[in-house]
Nucleic acid binder design. Structure first.
Lengths: 128, 128
DNA sequence: CGGTATCCGTAGGGATACTG
DNA sequence: CAGTATCCCTACGGATACCG
């Protein structure tokens, strides 16, 4: 019971700033990395993502994946087999964020460079 | 005393991912808004920023401004007069982030749109 | 294999009042 | 005018163990 409103549906989220919306969606600890991986590999199983992003604990990885799914950026496909098999992939909406990530990557790179810092990250430059 | 290392200077920050770097720099609650305002108005006093961003408490506004200054994105010019006068403006480095914010704005807009949500934010579309 | 459950610490952010 | 100073809270993220 959050009691956000007493009438049925005159409620809208308070944050409706485009830039903040973008930050809220991809600002989570491993979200940009997950999206990046899915852009280059298109389909990854949970266990593969775990290997690609070893710093994320299972709880964190699952949480970030669920939030990306809720945001409509990724699709979770469950195969009813045993042992379980789950594949993650980008939705069309998820693919549409590519230019944003590329712009952020480019600027962040420039930023690290100007501080004499080497990039240390498993993101490989996105082609096209 | 953080004791981050025992030798003199073999220490480097752990996060050196370009995308995370960008998020860390502009991800603060009011940072993108501050940058946006300074892009359109080029110079703003503290009191003007307070009016432009009324939701930010003085503590938060000051904190975000200091962090942006530390990151090298904005310049803080103090006039030694009484009453005090302080002007904030973008550095060249700060100006360089414009394409990133524009990409985020555009995508965020698209995102809100697809959910039938109206933009409710004091950011006005950036020209050029 | 692909997750939950539980517990916990910290940092980011907020409210309010005060000051050189 | 342009900030500090305090106090407070909770949401994010992490460690570890367990489950269908």
């Amino acid at each position: 019971m959050k009691n956000k409103s007493n009438s049925n549906e005159d409620y809208k989220p308070t944050i409706r700033c485009p830039v903040e919306t973008t930050i809220n969606i991809i600002g989570g600890k491993y979200k940009s990395l997950i999206l990046w991986k899915l852009m280059t590999t298109k389909t990854l199983r949970y266990s593969q993502l775990r290997k690609e992003i070893p710093n994320a604990t299972p709880k964190m990885l699952t949480q970030q994946l669920r939030e990306l799914e809720t945001s409509g950026l990724i699709h979770r496909r469950v195969f009813p087999v045993v042992p379980p098999k789950v594949e993650y992939s980008l939705t069309d909406f998820g693919k549409s964020i590519k230019p944003v990530l590329k712009a952020m990557y480019k600027w962040g790179n420039h930023c690290l460079d100007s501080q004499g810092l080497e990039v240390n990250c498993s993101m490989v430059e996105l082609t096209n």
